[in-house]
């Protein structure tokens, strides 16, 4: 799963200046990126590129890890052995993806520990979508279908992003995620073909997850000040609004197939642009969730902090054991 890049304070941060860097090095760097070359960890890179990447990759990693929680909430209650195994494999994948991404970010000189501490201190962001609660089993279907569907749209272009380790991590992530959306849609199909209660459950899940899913693509292009630099550096490959439109166009027919109604009275086909017109997103809600005011934001952060703090003695014990072993070998 993925988040588009979120600014530290609700969306408005000026582009980082690169004027203090050696102009010749910057020019050579930008020429390499423009020629579709990959930048590797020990290559020279502008400080702003490094910082932007650490922020973007770590936000992405945090989103994967926090994203384990809403779906993990249903692992003990999955309604069949098959569903339980699939969901466990999927949530495990999210953990793996977080791990790949932390490792990619670590090649830029920031340790996983530092990134995790930034998350726990509330300094780093993660995707707003994971601050919504999973109330019914249909939410697991809706997350796979909508949230992973939105994530894939964001992630596929990043397989060609300019930073080698990030691009390679994304290739692995995309390959593994290919089953995630399908399993979600399969859950929705089963519910859609099920009892009246199951259909109602599916519609309710769509009602609650639709707008937060659209928000996943980030603020409107007009409010994305870093975009130009992001495009030039091949850190960002498509605009938020373009991806959002693409998502809506792809998803509406899928909802129709399920017999479900998208909760947007303004949604209609626009034959002229060959795409859907849709209603205004509640950006106030989006920025509130970015600020940490989402319905389950506190629970999510507490769960992550608890896991990290309560696991400290385990990590220390293994280190202590290794130190003893080395001492015994040296003796």
């Amino acid at each position: 799963m993925y988040t588009t890049e979120l600014k530290e304070q609700g969306g408005k941060v000026a582009p980082v200046s690169i004027v203090s860097e050696d102009p010749e090095l910057v020019a050579a760097f930008e020429a390499r990126v423009a020629a579709d070359e990959f930048i590797e960890p020990k290559d020279w890179m502008p400080e702003a590129y490094r910082r932007t990447l650490v922020r973007q990759i770590s936000q992405h990693a945090h989103s994967e890890i926090v994203g384990m929680l809403p779906e993990g909430n249903w692992l003990t209650r999955a309604p069949s052995l098959r569903r339980k195994a699939i969901l466990l494999a999927k949530v495990q994948d999210e953990g793996g993806h977080g791990l790949y991404l932390y490792c990619a970010a670590e090649t830029l000189g920031t340790s996983r520990e530092e990134m995790i501490e930034a998350l726990h201190a509330g300094k780093a962001k993660y995707s707003t979508i994971f601050n919504y609660p999973t109330l019914t089993w249909a939410d697991i279907g809706a997350i796979g279908w909508l949230v992973d569907g939105a994530a894939i749209m964001n992630q596929v272009p990043l397989q060609r992003t300019s930073y080698g380790p990030y691009a390679r991590a994304m290739i692995r992530v995309c390959k593994e995620e290919s089953f995630h959306q399908r399993q979600g849609y399969e859950i929705m199909m089963t519910l859609g073909a099920g009892t009246a209660e199951q259909k109602a459950m599916a519609q309710d899940a769509l009602n609650r997850w639709w707008w937060p899913s659209l928000m996943m693509f980030g603020p409107p292009d007009a409010d994305s000040p870093n975009s130009a630099q992001g495009f030039r550096w091949r850190i960002k490959r498509d605009s938020n609004d373009d991806l959002r439109r693409k998502f809506v166009d792809a998803t509406v027919p899928q909802a129709e197939f399920l017999g479900l109604t998208i909760p947007d009275p303004d949604l209609r086909w626009n034959a002229e642009k060959e795409g859907y017109d849709f209603g205004e997103i509640d950006w106030e809600e989006f920025y509130a969730v970015v600020r940490g005011e989402g319905p389950t934001a506190r629970e999510r952060m507490k769960a992550r902090r608890d896991a990290w703090e309560q696991g400290a003695w385990v990590r220390e014990a293994a280190d202590a054991h290794e130190a003893k072993r080395r001492a015994r070998l040296a003796a």
Binding site: I65, M68, L69, G72, L88, G98, L99, D306, A307, V314
Partner: peptide, 8 residues
């Protein structure tokens, strides 16, 4: 799941 002492 999601609560272990380390990601690995």
């Amino acid at each position: 799941c999601g609560h272990a002492p380390a990601l690995e």
